[in-house]
């Protein structure tokens, strides 16, 4: 692309769009003054439409330039999102850890009272807590 800079591309597209606008003004004046027939008017309008498509093509170039220019920022943002997710996850781990402590206390209490059934139940809860903690 000869016009590498996004702003240059956009400016050039603006100029082409403005040219199309000028053609249109002149065309409408010609139609109003009956300077031209319908066929000629249609031909000129087609030229105008072509110019607009050329301009739109340049706007797509500009759009692609912008997207390319944002790749680094996009990468940084993605990294930050991951960091934030990690921080939230850490807290969830702490939540799991508190569950673990609670169940551990139940076990200690059951052991203190030397009751078999509650001990087994508490051990099962602790097993689940450890599993959950490992999953995170």
């Amino acid at each position: 692309m000869a016009l590498a800079n996004q702003k240059q591309v956009e400016d050039f597209a603006d100029i082409i769009s403005e040219c199309a606008d000028s053609i249109h003004v002149r065309l409408m004046k010609a139609i109003k003054n009956k300077e031209i027939d319908q066929y000629t008017a249609q031909l000129i309008f087609q030229d105008e439409a072509m110019l607009r498509q050329r301009a739109n093509s340049l706007y797509i170039d500009a759009v692609n330039c912008i997207v390319d220019g944002l790749s680094q920022s996009q990468k940084s943002i993605t990294e930050l999102i991951d960091t934030a997710k990690g921080k939230i996850k850490t807290i969830k781990k702490i939540a799991g850890f508190i569950d673990f402590i609670a169940d551990l206390l139940v076990l200690a209490a059951a052991a203190y009272a030397a009751k078999t059934a509650p001990i087994l139940a508490a051990l099962e809860e602790i097993r689940k807590d450890v599993e959950a903690l490992n999953k995170n």
């Binding site: 603006d14 739109n56 759009v63 912008i66």
Partner: peptide, 12 residues
Amino acid sequence: ALVRCYKKTNEN
């Protein structure tokens, strides 16, 4: 800038 390009495309 992208919205600006969309707008100009829409004008054409």
